[in-house]
Structures are given as structure tokens and as C-alpha cells.
Design a protein around this nucleic acid. Sequence first.
DNA 1: GGAGTCTTTGCGAGTAAGGG
DNA 2: CCCTTACTCGCAAAGACTCC
Length: 332
Amino acid sequence: MGRKNLLSDLLSDPPQAAPSAPLAEEGRAPQPTLGGRGVVGAMSRSLERLTAESEAARALADQFANGETVLEIDPSVIDASIVPDRMPGTDEEHEALVQSISANGQLVPVLLRPHPSQPARYQTAYGHRRVRALKALGRPVRAVIRKMTDEELVVAQGKENGERKDLSFIERAIYAVTLEDREFKRDTIGSALSVDKTELSRLISVGRAIPRALIEAIGPAPKTGRRRWMELESLLQGKDAIGDLAPLISSQAFRSKNSDARFLAVCAALAPRPQRTEPESWTSVDGKAVASIERKTEKTTLAVNEKVAPGFGEFVVGRLGELYVEYLKGTA
DNA sequence: GGAGTCTTTGCGAGTAAGGG
DNA sequence: CCCTTACTCGCAAAGACTCC
């Protein structure tokens, strides 16, 4: 089944809020206005919104058909999920969401379950940001209440994020590790993230291999996928990542980059420096250093010392044709 | 040793970006 | 607009590991 609260995210939540301050990606920041993005883009988004609205409406209809009634709940009795999926968003994102809900209202309910140990309290399956915003507004939270096990809760929570595809690879890796640390079975974690066991294995491998502090310094890197995170994982092997990278990570230049650029900067800092090869001196039969040769993977450079052998360079150039024919005979 | 689970590796499909 | 390239993602298969 499709995502159930598309409408709320489109109309109530700032799009693509990110987990933490460094994870608050500029490309993923709230965009409450259409300024500067063009008429075509606005039309495209309108069409997407219409589609999303109809899907959300259908999902809502399903909920009503299943007998799930929307109730108004005091936000002060609503707790967070047992497992955080995203870290809290930035103040700017929260403020934008508050304003959006203030203007449009909460159009689609959040999903809660009765608190397993505290009567008259609830835990959030999804809709954390809306709950926080409504709390700030002092308004009741419109919510669907459903009894769920811990497994069902994290699956509902994970699917709400996972099916949106707006969680980057590393965000999903962190979530997978968090769930595994809470001793959820891999089947459950895989369901929550909508990934197969292979991908789950990779997510957990990367999520554990790369220090959390480094991940948070880089941010969600939405354009950076599995392969490059795994490359980073291998680059980090045997290194004190935080110690070695501290000067880079703390630099203003690094922090001013977007998340994907920060990822590339870290990779560049960790990548082995290509060995600088000194040009090799070529000495003639009469003992003169006539030329130097520099060999690289993609090219070989021959530099003739015109002071030592005036005109020799031009002589060699003039004979390139016959040398090449001789070369072809040797390689045939 | 067998069964189940997890990890690793390779490959192909799909997609977005860039260049001609 | 089409082609190429780079990239992500998921699937399949084999190997490694753990438990009984």
C-alpha cells in the first residue's frame, strides 16, 4: 500500500526535513515559496500534488473503511516512537511547519499507538514533526490510534520514511543499525526499510563501520548512494577517522559545503595520494643528460634539454612517423 | 553434518546528468 | 533530441558463520 500521509507532508510538513543540524541539507530544506523555481516547475509540482492528494485521500478512505477513527489527542500525552528514525529537524524547518499547519490546519492524521506501559498516553508511529508543531501551536493532534506491537510500530514508522525515498542511504543505514541495536530481527528491519536482506546487510555494515560523528559531520548526502559509502567504508579501514579528519571537519570551508560535497571532501582526504614520480633522466652514450622522461598512467612525457643537445628535440619529432611504423610492427 | 542466517560479490535494469 | 556515461538499486548465487 502507498504512503498514507503524503498529503500531510505536502501541505503540513516542510518537505524533506532532515535529521540534525548538519543533516539539515540545503537541497532538502523547506521551500515554502516557489520563488525562483520557474513556472514549469510550479506546474509540475501542482500535478504531483494532485496525484499525492488523491493517493492520500484514498489512504484515508481505507483507514475509515477499516474502522480506524480519527481522534483529537492532547499533544502533551503523546510520546515519541521507541526508536528515533530521524534526528530532530532544524528550528527553521520546525517554524515553517508550525506556520504551515497554522495556516492550513492538520489535514491528515498522525499514527499513534496506546503507550504499552503508561495508561492514557500514546506513542508516535509516524508524524513526529506534526505532533511537535501542534504542541507548539497548543492545538490537539488529529490521530489514528492503532494497537501495535513494537515490530509493527517500527515497520509502520520505517515504511512511512522508506517508501518516500527521501531517506538517503546513510540515513537508512543509521536507522537499520538503531533497530538492530534494539534487537529487532533482520526480517523486521528489512520490512521497516523495504529492503531485501542483501541491502540490509550492506546498510548495517556501513552504518557500523563509519563512525557516527563522521556521518553527522557529512550529513545525509542525498545524492550519495551505497557504492560510494562503501568506498568510504573501505577507505576508513585501519584509520582513526575522527582524529585524522578533525582539522578538515572543523574547518569553515568544509561546513559551508553541501552534504554531498562534504562527503567528497572526506573521501579526497582519505584517498591515498598518488605517488609523485620524479622525471627519469636519460643519459646519452657520450654521458650527457640529454632528456628527461616522465611516465604516468595516461601519458609519457619526453623533455629534451635543448641546452645540452640543441635541435635534438626537433630531430626526434621529425622521425615520429617512422618510429610509429616500427612500433606498429612490434605490437602486431 | 545439516539447516538457517548473514555476508560478499557480480551483474543487469533503471535513471539522471551532461555533451554533441 | 539522442547518445553516452555514471550512478543507484535490487536480484541471484556462492561462501562464511552459527547453532543444534
